[in-house]
């Protein structure tokens, strides 16, 4: 397998992020950005204590973000554990919203490939539109890149028509060189999206990591003509940060990627902050969280 072709300088990446994040997004461009962010959210609940009741509430929220503002877009999808897929699927029937399920022994991935494939088949059979898998970070750090690649390819096959998002769990890969290489492996192995994190490891999505993954997507597109999607996840709870990520996408990949088809936010509380900001922008008054339903 090709070794590290793309080197990343951490300080340079941080400086690029700082420059991108210094963009000042105001007025119409801010409203537009906030709505766009909203439409890109994978509303997520991934907890051991999740129950059908919790998931149903979340699905209702996803479809009815803020009924006072009818022209708002809905979120893109909801993201749940495998056992909750049938519940979500049923709750979202006729809404047009997608159901994404994590799979492959999320979040650690520490089981055999056959179990992982079994799990993927299970969620796909249950109707998951999108599958969020985790890569085998241990294998990656051991240098077993073929293993990592083959696993992704087999999961992709198991997905059938469902979309595959490949979670790199960048907090465990540690270096940006690793992030870049893992991105390249995932894309070459068939990922439809690459995704930063499970949300269970700290740090989750960091701006330099997202930048490096976007640059990987850009290079892959320039080489192959294939557009791969990107999903930062974990720790994105504020509208300001989300808008800054949009700036990053716009200036790294261009306008084409500013759509939920190619960019998602994995988040649980971001939607409400966006809503607060949208209301603030249209009323001119700063908002309180008490006025926005939590689920």
């Amino acid at each position: 397998m090709e070794t590290f072709l793309h080197r990343i300088d951490e300080v340079g990446a941080q400086e690029r992020v700082a420059r991108l994040f210094s963009r000042s997004i105001k007025k119409e461009s801010k409203i537009h950005a906030l709505k766009t962010v909203l439409s890109m959210i994978d509303l997520t609940t991934l907890e051991g204590k999740d129950s059908p009741g919790k998931v149903k509430q979340l699905c209702y929220k996803a479809a009815h973000l803020h009924d006072q503002f009818p022209d708002l877009p809905t979120v893109a999808a909801i993201c749940v554990y495998p056992t909750m897929v049938p519940v979500a699927k049923k709750a979202l029937r006729d809404t047009g919203l997608k159901v994404a399920s994590v799979a492959t022994a999320f979040p650690s991935g520490m089981t055999s490939l056959s179990y992982k494939l079994e799990e993927v088949k299970m969620v796909v059979d249950a109707g998951a539109d999108e599958v969020d898998m985790v890569i085998s970070r241990g294998k990656f750090l051991q240098g077993e890149y073929h293993y990592v690649s083959d696993e992704i390819a087999q999961v992709k096959e198991a997905c059938g028509k469902s979309h595959l998002k490949v979670i790199l769990e960048t907090g465990e890969l540690v270096t940006l060189d690793n992030v870049r290489f893992a991105s390249d492996i995932a894309m070459a192995a068939g990922a439809d999206f690459i995704k930063t994190s499970t949300g269970k490891v700290s740090p989750a999505a960091t701006p330099p990591v997202v930048l490096v993954m976007l640059e990987a997507i850009r290079d892959y597109y320039n080489q192959t003509g294939k557009k791969i999607g990107m999903k930062p996840a974990g720790g994105i709870s504020k509208a300001k940060l989300a808008v800054q990520y949009l700036v990053m996408v716009r200036e790294t990949l261009g306008q084409d990627w500013l759509t939920a088809d190619l960019f998602r936010f994995g988040a649980s509380s971001l939607a409400n902050d966006i809503l607060m900001q949208i209301v603030k922008q249209s009323t001119g008054v700063y908002q309180s969280a008490n006025y926005f339903s939590i689920d």
Partner: peptide, 19 residues
């Protein structure tokens, strides 16, 4: 590549307002 289509009329011609 098959795409997931989201109900949204958002156009992707986002530019920055004067600041």
């Amino acid at each position: 590549m098959e795409t997931t289509t989201i109900k949204s009329d958002l156009k992707t011609d986002w530019s920055y307002s004067p600041a």
